[in-house]
Design a protein around this nucleic acid. Structure first.
Lengths: 327, 327
DNA sequence: TTGTAAGCGTTATCAC
DNA sequence: GTGATAACGCTTACAA
């Protein structure tokens, strides 16, 4: 592998001049520049990133720590985050934490040893105490004191869902969501809990509407049909459902179908995420659509502006009601 | 950030000795070692990875280039590759190429500038000419001259599918798969084409069985219901389907249901991948299950043994018939 | 406009 | 056992 020295001696100049050409910094006589570029081309010289990183103390790598990529929303988010990072000259390192706190911390450690420039953190673990103030961390869907974060407008999402169900004539509603969206029991409270709050907010003005709520342990964000049936028990006395994700909404529709209920005639179901197209079982799920592309861009935006922004800066991304066939 | 020099002077030793302690190389008096470790602990010293990389010319980062992570098989694979890499001390950089050849090449370039130690390449693009012999590339599901690769035993998978459909009494079969699995028209031939070959192989011995084949352009590996209906046209005269992926099988089942056909009574459907549980529409899809975890491990295995292996070494991972409700 | 040389923080090769 | 010191390949003052 040729180095900058090889280029310099072959072009009959000093390495600083070569560096200037490489980085377009400082003045270089156009004739000299041409000669250097020629040599670079001839011998196929490529700058060594590692050496550059050592000098500049930047790696242009961002770590994305998330539970796993099996959940369709996460894999969509992953896609858009990578696109946004790539557009800004960053590479993305991925850590599937599986909610494993040790693995999360091992990736955070890389901030300390210069391996990555920043970490995008998506977790439901109670790790606030491990975050040091000088770490460049951007949180997703969750507030950590002293760090910026990005989230969808979950409150509005909950409101939209409630309004839609009410408009469609539902009288007895069911909310179903996991721990992390509870916002009461668990120590860890994510922004996702606002979906429920927004939902309740609208119901306050409608005392005639009944609401039942089912909350289950988060685990891997996924619920199988049998598990959902266990949670519901025997009480199918509802005509509208707000599920915390499209994945859960999808399972709910399967369960209802199996129980002989027609969706949306007997029961209307609204999900959240807007990724349902790939998992819908015959019908399109009505859902609160997150703007995943924008979420990815917002995360990268905060990384770039990290040093100028306030410690508690955040970007809230708008959501919209996407009307499908289920509600 | 404290450096090795700080540790050395604080412990009253030379940096070489500190380095020895850090790397457990060479002899160090246990007393000195203890003192050094104490200092390291006191000031919270962490070795700078970048500097290490520069010295050792290794980054312990592996790039995984794949079309995108929206396809459920890819996101499962991504998960297991990361797990396997992590277990062996590697970090994973992810590139969603979107089948974009420039983006793929930009990631391959990182091999040249020491940013990554190896690249796992999953592509359907015609990029053989850009691969230089000294690059550490491991291919997935595809042969590139002079590079090792990992693939499932696709041929056997095709055979298993055919046998199952025949055993279940099917007489008129339909094969449906994309370009990349064609193995005839396109310049690029992937190992996936062997699914079809294996399928045909069994049918050779059963001249009484009819076979119709539908081949469509690969694009993003996904087919919508309407698109599939267009491909099928009016000819629903088949009683057994072998789809190139669970995703396609899933869409096929939706289409059949809409056309009033019962699965598996009227038509039996077999998919490929074994990830269908997350997209099944009420019934479990019978499928050829790939051992995705093993595939991930095999890829990492080849990376680790890269310098000892033959240039055309490959690992073929076994598949199995997973009987569900669709065939 | 250009070159020299001092870092960047390690590892590894020598002597001692 | 241990400590200088030379790489590793680049960026960036500072001189010239």
């Amino acid at each position: 592998m040729p180095t900058i020295k090889d280029v310099a001696s072959l072009a009959g100049v000093g390495i600083a001049t070569v560096s200037r050409v490489l980085n377009n910094s400082g003045y270089v006589k156009s004739e000299t520049r041409k000669r250097i570029l020629q040599v670079i081309d001839d011998i196929g010289y490529v700058p060594n990133e590692i050496a550059r990183n050592l000098s500049s103390k930047k790696s242009h790598i961002v770590a994305f720590v998330l539970p796993h990529t099996r959940h369709i929303f996460f894999s969509e988010l992953l896609f858009h985050v990578e696109e946004a990072l790539f557009k800004h000259g960053y590479k993305m390192m991925v850590c599937n934490s599986s909610e494993n706190i040790e693995k999360e911390l091992s990736y955070l450690e890389m901030l300390g040893n210069n391996k990555v420039d920043a970490v995008i953190l998506l977790t439901n673990n109670d790790i606030a105490e491990f975050l040091k103030p000088n770490m460049k961390i951007i949180s997703f869907d969750r507030r950590f004191d002293g760090y910026p974060f990005v989230a969808s407008d979950n409150f509005k999402g909950g409101q939209l869902a409630a309004q839609r169900l009410i408009n469609q004539g539902c009288k007895k509603l069911l909310y179903i969501g996991d721990d992390s969206a509870q916002g009461s029991v668990s120590k860890v409270i994510t922004e996702v809990s606002k979906r429920r709050q927004g939902f309740r907010d609208v119901l306050k003005k409608h005392p005639e509407i009944k609401l039942k709520e089912i909350v289950y342990p988060l685990r891997d964000y996924i619920l199988k049909k049998e598990e959902l049936m266990d949670l519901i028990g025997n009480d199918y006395n509802f005509d509208g459902v707000f599920a915390i994700s499209d994945s859960i909404a999808n399972t709910m529709i399967k369960v209802l179908t199996q129980k002989g209920k027609k969706v949306p005639n007997d029961v209307k179901v609204i999900g959240f995420d807007g990724v349902a197209h790939s998992l819908n079982n015959g019908i399109e799920i009505t859902t609160i659509k997150q703007n995943i592309k924008r979420l990815g861009e917002a995360l990268v935006e905060l990384i770039q502006r990290y040093d100028e922004i306030r410690k508690d800066e955040h970007i809230m991304v708008d959501v919209e009601l996407l009307i499908g066939d289920s509600a």
